[in-house]
Amino acid sequence: MALINVAAREIHCKIVYYGPGLCGKTTNLKYIHSAVPGHARGDLLSIATETERTLFFDFLPLDLGQVHGFQTRFHLYTVPGQVLYERTRVAVLNGADGVVFVADSQQTKLREDIISLQELARNIQAEGKKFLEFPLVLQYNKRDVPNALPIEQLDHYLNSSIKVPRFEAVASKGVGVFDTLKAISKLVISKL
């Protein structure tokens, strides 16, 4: 739930990057952190294991500056993708205003994508929210790998029933990262 502080003239929104293990959620945040102008970003905070897998979450605050007299901020989070951490994902998802679901385009990962998206739907509904009305965008990541599934197939398996905006990406090179971020942040603002 977004927070609008009238006295401090601030608006805060929370966006969570969700998806199966190693799909590129942290990579998205790292790219955003490297490419957004310094005045608009805070430190990227990562709670990761020694092998750099996300253990709890990554956190990146972004500051749009003053808009109509309101300081507008987005807080970006990632969840840990590994199956083991389902309850941790629930904890991070708490109070989110919007979600980017990062799908791994590799053929071998389709099953994990589907399971993770179903889990997301369950977890959002468990918060009492309507999944189909919840601000959500899909990102088909790793479009550059040789065994990437065709877009039509990903659409069929992941997006045919929810029909949300979706973007192709190669997060490691920054391709599609900002298109995704722009779409989710606008969606979140439209629902404020």
Binding site: I4, V6, I32, V36, P37, A40, L62, L64, G65, V67, H68, F70, T72, F178, L181, K182, S185, K186, I189, S190, L192
Partner: peptide, 18 residues
């Protein structure tokens, strides 16, 4: 507080920054 103008301006800022 959240007027249409506000939303439009935020969208413009998003395009500018991101």
């Amino acid at each position: 507080i959240i007027s249409t103008n506000f939303r439009t301006s935020v969208e413009d800022t998003i395009d500018l920054l991101f």
